[in-house]
């Protein structure tokens, strides 16, 4: 078993475990911390796939900015106590069962899909994930969506300010 495979399985296990921990933690702050762990694991996957730019951006934007925002809000509201009332147990069960069914159905779908047989993802090599190549594509082919996304940011900022403002 190569080092890449070992890393893959380790990161996968870490991601799934952390994700489950996000779910089961009673304390929202712990959830946020476990979610950050998930993001780190996913960034690890990105590096394995030689998508360095996305790995860094994922860490900076998600694990850094967004999760800090989450933490900030949680602490602002003082939600670190066990303030959440339990959902009805049947609702929980129904949610878990339907989520499980969803997983099962999709897994079985993938298992028998001919398209995915004998296909592999290129590990470690390939340079499309480098900043240079991505930047070229982004500022040539995708320049219009890129500019539009700046407008989206602006409107999101305005929206957040308007919503969050006290009357």
């Amino acid at each position: 078993m190569s080092i890449t495979e070992i890393l893959f399985f380790f990161l996968s296990a870490l991601a799934i475990f952390s994700a489950i921990m996000v779910l089961v933690s009673r304390n929202p702050v712990h959830s946020v911390l476990w979610l950050i762990a998930v993001f780190f694991a996913i960034s690890g996957h990105y590096i394995l796939l030689n998508a360095q730019f996305l790995a860094i951006v994922n860490l900076i934007v998600y694990a850094g900015a967004i999760m800090v925002l989450f933490l900030f809000v949680i602490m602002l509201m003082n939600l670190n106590k066990e303030s959440e009332r339990n959902k009805h147990v049947w609702m929980k069960l129904a949610g878990a069962v339907s989520g499980g069914c969803f997983l099962m159905v999709l897994v079985s779908l993938v298992r028998q899909a001919k398209d995915f047989q004998e296909k592999t993802a290129l590990m470690g090599t390939g340079d499309i994930g480098l900043i240079k190549n991505l930047g070229k594509a982004l500022f040539s082919d995708f320049v219009v969506p890129f500019e539009i996304s700046s407008v989206l940011f602006l409107s999101a900022m305005v929206g957040a300010v308007v919503i969050g403002k006290k009357e």
Partner: peptide, 8 residues
Amino acid sequence: DLSIMNFL
């Protein structure tokens, strides 16, 4: 697809 059913 029968295969899904069979798998299930």
